Lab assay of single mutants.
Amino acid sequence: KSAVKALFDYKAQREDELTFTKSAIIQNVEKQDGGWWRGDYGGKKQLWFPSNYVEEMI
């Protein structure tokens, strides 16, 4: 599983989504079709976030 870095702040709209700030590192990313991926951040595990808010880390 990979890690991504947030390009923008994102505030969860639902309880199954992540809230994060710009430059946050989201771990254990599971990529899905449809523009939403799952990952771990801030003590939350495998919640959804919009993939267009992040960049992949190499």
Rank of each mutant, 00 (worst) to 15 (best):
W36D: 04
F20S: 01
Q46R: 09
N28C: 10
D33C: 14
D33Y: 09
K22I: 09
W48H: 05
G35L: 11
G35N: 09
Y53R: 07
K22Q: 11
Q46L: 05
F20Y: 01
Q27R: 15
A6P: 06
W37Q: 03
K1G: 13
S23E: 14
Q13N: 10
G35C: 14
M57I: 15
A3T: 15
E56T: 09
Q46C: 09
Q13E: 12
W37F: 05
E17Y: 03
G35M: 10
T19G: 07
I58D: 14
R14G: 12
E55V: 13
G39S: 00
K22R: 11
K1S: 13
K45R: 11
V54E: 02
S2A: 13
G39L: 00
R38I: 09
Q46K: 08
K11N: 15
D16C: 15
E55F: 07
E56G: 07
V4Y: 13
E15Q: 10
G39T: 00
G42Y: 05
Q27S: 13
N28L: 04
K22E: 09
E55T: 12
Q13V: 12
N52G: 11
F49W: 02
L18P: 03
W37N: 02
G35Q: 09
Y41A: 06
R14K: 15
V29E: 01
K31A: 05
V54Y: 01
R38Y: 04
N52E: 13
K11V: 15
K45D: 07
D33R: 08
T19C: 08
G39K: 00
N52P: 06
K5W: 01
L7V: 11
S23D: 15
A6V: 06
K31F: 10
E15N: 09
Q32I: 15
L7M: 11
Q13C: 15
T21N: 12
K5N: 04
R14E: 10
F8I: 10
I58Q: 14
M57T: 11
P50F: 01
P50M: 02
Y10V: 01
L7C: 14
K1V: 12
G43R: 07
W36H: 05
D9L: 00
Y53N: 04
I26P: 01
Q27W: 12
K44D: 11
D40F: 00
K45E: 13
G43V: 07
E17F: 02
Y41C: 06
M57F: 14
A24P: 02
G39H: 00
F49Q: 01
R38S: 06
A6W: 00
F8P: 06
I26N: 01
K5D: 04
Q13F: 07
K31P: 06
M57E: 09
G34H: 07
G34C: 11
L7E: 07
W37M: 07
E15P: 13
N52S: 15
E56I: 10
S23R: 08
Q46P: 03
V29H: 01
K5A: 05
K5M: 09
S23Q: 10
G39C: 04
A3S: 15
F20C: 05
A24C: 12
Q27H: 14
V4I: 04
W37Y: 05
Y10K: 04
N52C: 14
K5G: 00
E55L: 08
S51V: 09
E17L: 00
I58Y: 14
E30P: 01
Q46G: 14
G43E: 11
T21M: 13
D16G: 10
K45W: 08
E17D: 03
E55R: 07
S2L: 15
V4F: 11
K11P: 08
L47I: 03
W48F: 09
Y10C: 08
V4T: 04
E56M: 08
D16Q: 08
D40Q: 00
R14A: 14
F8K: 14
F20E: 01
E15K: 12
D40Y: 00
G42E: 11
F49P: 03
F8Y: 14
G42D: 13
G35D: 11
A12L: 01
I25W: 08
Y53D: 02
L47C: 15
G34S: 08
V4N: 03
S2C: 15
K31S: 05
V29G: 02
Q32M: 15
E56Y: 06
K45T: 14
D33S: 12
G39W: 00
S51A: 14
I25Q: 04
R38T: 08
L7P: 04
D40N: 03
D16S: 09
R38V: 08
W48M: 08
Q46N: 12
F8S: 09
K44T: 06
N28I: 04
T21S: 13
F20H: 02
N52Y: 10
G43N: 10
G42I: 04
I58E: 14
G42A: 11
R14V: 08
W37R: 00
W37E: 03
I25T: 05
Y41S: 05
I25S: 03
L18M: 06
G34N: 09
N52A: 14
K11T: 15
L18Y: 02
A6T: 07
Q32N: 12
A24L: 02
A24V: 08
S2V: 15
E30D: 14
L18E: 04
T19F: 04
A6D: 05
K11G: 09
I26G: 00
K45N: 10
I58W: 13
A3W: 14
F49M: 01
G42K: 08
A6Q: 01
I26D: 01
D16I: 08
V29W: 02
S2M: 14
G34P: 06
W36E: 04
T21L: 12
V4G: 06
N28R: 07
M57N: 08
R14T: 13
I58L: 12
E17C: 07
A12G: 12
Y10I: 01
S23M: 10
I25P: 00
K22L: 06
K44I: 05
T19N: 09
W36S: 04
G43W: 04
Q27G: 09
M57S: 09
R38G: 04
A12Y: 03
D40C: 03
L47W: 04
L47F: 11
K22G: 06
E15S: 12
M57L: 15
F20R: 01
E30C: 15
D16V: 09
F20T: 02
Q13A: 11
V4P: 03
F49C: 04
D9N: 07
Y10N: 04
S23W: 11
V4C: 15
W48C: 07
D40H: 00
N52W: 13
M57D: 10
R14C: 15
Q27E: 15
K31Q: 08
Q27K: 13
G34F: 05
T19Q: 07
V4W: 09
A24K: 02
T19K: 02
F8L: 13
R14Q: 11
W37G: 03
W37V: 05
I25D: 03
K11C: 15
W48D: 02
V54Q: 02
A12Q: 07
M57G: 09
G34A: 06
I26H: 01
V54K: 01
K31M: 11
K1Y: 10
Y53V: 11
Q46I: 02
W48N: 04
K22P: 05
W48I: 05
D16E: 11
K45V: 15
D33E: 13
E55N: 06
K45Q: 12
D40E: 01
E56L: 08
V29K: 02
F20K: 02
F49S: 02
S2H: 13
N28E: 07
R38E: 03
Q46S: 09
E17K: 00
E30Y: 12
K44F: 12
I58G: 13
K31T: 07
Q13I: 11
A3F: 13
W48S: 05
Q13D: 09
K11E: 15
L18H: 06
I25M: 08
K5P: 00
N28Q: 07
Y10L: 00
F20D: 02
V4D: 01
I25C: 10
Q46E: 07
L7T: 07
I58A: 13
I58R: 12
G39M: 00
A24D: 08
K22H: 07
S51Y: 06
V4M: 11
D16A: 06
A6R: 02
K22Y: 05
V54S: 03
D9H: 03
A24M: 06
W36C: 07
E15A: 11
D9V: 00
D33N: 11
I25K: 05
T19D: 11
G43Q: 09
S51H: 07
E15Y: 10
L7A: 07
P50I: 00
